[in-house]
């Protein structure tokens, strides 16, 4: 049923992006497997808690900008492709709260599943390392009144600790292409921690 709904609402660009996404995932998994065999490459799966704001209707005229809080959880597997250069896949589940009622309208609460393959670079620092990731994928949003998949691009930057429970803290920005919303931006902070697997982490990345 869910997949039927997804299919009905998918735009042609969404279908192409979904295909690209699946291809990226397969490529990522293949690369990850290959990298796992190479003991010098880092492979990890992190969990992340996140929170931030979605900026809805940034360009609207009748319906002006509303900033709506959201929070979520992500799984972030990543693999070091070459020295300091990473492939990552953020699989996120988030919940956006209902907006305020100013202007006699509101955005209802909605859930979102995000699949964002990313490529990133790690820059060595002193106490911490600095990371930047850029990617694109799909946000599938669902609420009582609407279910649709929308293409998205995202970028995040942050710091990574060489050791400790918290692996990294990032600030992320994503743009969802959605004609109905005019524009749909998300800014979030998220902290990651190692989940199932963390091997060959390079503490000597300098």
């Amino acid at each position: 049923m869910i997949f039927q709904t997804i299919g009905e609402n998918m735009t042609s660009i969404g279908k192409k992006l979904l295909f690209s996404l699946l291809l990226s995932i397969m490529l990522g998994l293949t690369t990850m497997t290959a990298a796992g065999a190479d003991e010098k490459k880092e492979v990890s799966i992190d969990a992340a808690l996140s929170g931030g704001v979605r900026l809805l209707d940034l360009e609207g005229e009748t319906y002006s900008l509303k900033a709506v809080p959201f929070f979520g959880f992500s799984i972030v597997p990543r693999v070091e492709l070459i020295h300091r250069f990473f492939f990552s896949l953020e699989v996120s589940l988030s919940y956006t709260l209902r907006s305020d009622y100013k202007g006699y309208y509101y955005y209802d609460s909605f859930g979102t599943i995000g699949l964002i393959p990313e490529l990133g670079l790690l820059f060595p620092g002193g106490v911490v390392d600095y990371a930047i990731f850029i990617g694109g994928g799909i946000f599938h949003s669902f609420s009582e009144y609407d279910t649709a998949s929308r293409p998205a691009v995202a970028a995040r930057a942050g710091i990574e600790f060489k050791e400790g429970f918290v692996r990294g803290i990032y600030i992320s920005y994503s743009h969802v292409f959605d004609e109905a919303f005019q524009s749909y931006e998300s800014i979030k902070l998220f902290a990651t921690t190692p989940l199932l697997l963390r091997s060959n982490v390079r503490n000597d990345i300098k």
């Binding site: 509303k66 900033a67 305020d100 800014i187």
Partner: peptide
């Protein structure tokens, strides 16, 4: 971010 999210207090009127 928290300020941005919280600055829209509940209410309806805005000169509509």
């Amino acid at each position: 971010l928290l300020f941005l999210a919280g600055c829209s207090l509940l209410g309806t009127g805005d000169g509509t």
